[in-house]
Design a protein around this nucleic acid. Structure first.
Lengths: 201, 201
DNA sequence: ATCGAAAACTAGACAGTGTCAAGTTAATGC
DNA sequence: GCATTAACTTGACACTGTCTAGTTTTCGAT
């Protein structure tokens, strides 16, 4: 009677950590990140209020873990979009569009990945920092590829180009998600203009 | 004995609204926006916990009012920077630099102006929305000026250019303030690259 | 197979939060 | 001078994150 494959024993849950992460994404999907409290989360999973603290030192740690998952699925989404290109000319546009589609599709996740809830007051987990860093490094590698393919000027430092172009996309995403200055209607034109700027850098 | 120029009477404060705004900026300056609570604020000013609610319907309304002030001083800073230009060539760079300098100098204010604390959950005040809107409209006007001066391509829609370039600057500001992917050391080079992109759009 | 340590979990409590309802005091207009 | 209204207070409610101390289960070493 090992019980780990059965439903939980009354006391030991057996799979609390991932259950918490799942319930947390659910709660956030239902009412935004503000609707997520450690207590509601514990209630939802069916454990006591303080049980989650044995798996996450903090609420911030929990949010960081969610952000970490976000980086992974972002990476998947972008690589998939790039792989689907039929010509090199598309690459830049596909990247930009998939970036913004990800932000739109999972706004709360995007907020966690790049928002202050994790990066500022939270002091991000070491795990999260390296994950986010790798994510950017891979983008810089794409940039150098694109330079070699002649899609981008080889004059500019790849790192700098990556930083500025990421800023543009991040800015577009933020303004769009927050409802400031930008609305969905003309987004495609804005992406086109941004890509045009990237090309002529 | 009108008493408005004297210190407060015991009961009626006489100038609570602006005192609250002042104390709020102080508190935020001391420990970030998280360190601002309605109760601490009331304590600091020397009134009861619920007194502020006679001048601001909400905590969000209070934050919106601060953001509004932020937009005004932003506007001043930018116009001053542009006025100091000695040649038209400088204009774009001066704008970009003053934008980021403002964000760096008043990070918490910048957060309020463009952060989710006000725009998302808060449902921004009508006042704030129009203030922010005017701010952007004036930027669009600058853009059309710059186009006529030959600093920018006249091919692109001024609105779209304004949206994308603002996104770039906003993205740079956000990543910089949140400590993601960008550090102060190379900021000037990034601004230069961004401006170069703007020019070649 | 037993026993002790460690891991998983619970109950209770504390200090803090935003804000509502009802009551009190001062200013203001007629 | 008085009624209306605006400014302000006290008390309370329902939350929040998280600390401490205790309980229950699991597991590895003997």
């Amino acid at each position: 009677m090992t019980s780990t494959n059965q439903v939980k024993t009354a006391y030991h849950h057996g799979d609390l950590r991932s259950s918490l992460l799942q319930a947390a994404t659910d709660l956030i999907a239902e009412g935004g990140v503000d609707a997520l409290s450690m207590r509601k989360l514990a209630d939802r999973v069916g454990v006591s209020r303080t049980a989650p603290y044995h798996h996450f030192t903090d609420k911030h740690a929990l949010l960081s873990a969610l952000a970490e998952e976000g980086f992974k699925s972002y990476e998947r989404a972008v690589e998939e979009a790039l792989a689907g290109a039929t010509s090199e000319d598309e690459l830049l546009f596909r990247f930009a569009r998939s970036y913004l589609e990800f932000a739109q599709a999972y706004p709360e996740t995007y907020n966690l990945m790049f928002g202050q809830s994790v990066w500022k007051a939270g002091i991000p987990t070491e795990h999260l920092k390296t994950e986010a860093y790798h994510c950017f490094r891979r983008y810089v590698e794409h940039v150098t590829d694109w330079q070699q393919q002649g899609l981008l000027s080889e004059q500019v430092e790849p790192l700098h180009f990556a930083q500025v172009s990421w800023s543009t996309l991040h800015g577009l995403a933020r303004l769009l998600l927050d409802g400031i200055y930008i609305d969905l209607k003309h987004l495609d034109e804005l992406i086109n203009l941004a890509v045009k700027m990237f090309r002529n850098a």
